[in-house]
């Protein structure tokens, strides 16, 4: 999350606001050309940790989409009243409120998953993507577009993590959504359950996508 104000060489962090009425472009951008994970490499902090089981990842991603969309909308509605100097802390508090709602809902309806997710639900607050979207988009766009932008950034992030989670659970434990799929002939790849597996998978993922982008640019 620190990325937002970090002096990142060569990477434009805050992008200019897009004109009104470009809802479709806003949506497609978040999933493809501006995907938060492999284009901006943001927000892998809190969610990568739960990608060893698909069920947890799905719940976590839904929570993240909700938090991103709702805080983007709230910041957008309040954007005329948020003082520029204190905007970071105001944004953080708005995000915290939406995440607390997720946390309470999970505790009430899915207590088992809430326990396995542990601190990671709360860590959505410091997820770079949520903050990044409110800072780069919510602060200077109307609420409707902010909602679309939040949902699409969340979705763009979720599908990458879901792919990683499917590979990790299938190869690491031979199961999917907790159901054993691969028979006794399958030898579990323990490395995919270990933390390093997620690092390697994400790196390969970025490699493939970036390679495709580079090829496109050459043409």
């Amino acid at each position: 999350m620190a990325d937002i104000s970090a002096p990142v060489a060569g990477r434009p962090v805050v992008r200019p606001a897009r004109p009104r009425g470009k809802a479709y472009k806003t949506f497609v951008d978040g999933i493809g050309a501006n995907n938060p994970v492999f284009v901006q490499v943001l927000g892998i902090c809190s969610t990568l940790a739960v990608t060893n089981v698909v069920t947890n990842t799905v719940v976590m991603c839904l929570g993240l989409i909700w938090a991103t969309a709702m805080s983007n909308v709230s910041v957008s509605i309040l954007r005329k009243w948020i003082p520029a100097r204190a905007r970071m802390i105001v944004e953080t508090l708005i995000i915290a409120v939406w995440v607390i709602i997720v946390d309470i809902a999970l505790r009430a309806y899915l207590p088992d998953i809430s326990r396995t997710l542990g601190p990671y639900v709360g860590l959505i607050i410091t997820n770079c993507i949520v903050m990044g979207r409110t800072e780069a988009f919510g602060l200077n766009n109307p609420p409707g577009l902010a909602l679309i932008d939040g949902v699409s950034a969340g979705l763009g992030y979720s599908y990458v993590l879901l792919i990683i989670a499917v590979i990790r659970e299938l190869a690491g434990s031979g199961s999917l959504l907790g159901v054993k799929l691969l028979g006794p002939w399958w030898t579990n790849w323990t490395i995919f359950v270990m933390p390093s597996g997620a690092f390697f998978l994400l790196a390969v993922f970025i490699w493939v996508v970036k390679g495709a982008i580079l090829k496109e640019q050459k043409k």
Partner: peptide, 18 residues
């Protein structure tokens, strides 16, 4: 490799460190 420059290779290093 060009596609791995920056974040990609950093993640691989982090994986090996882990």
């Amino acid at each position: 490799p060009r596609g791995l420059e920056g974040a990609g290779i950093a993640l691989i290093i982090a994986g090996i460190m882990s």
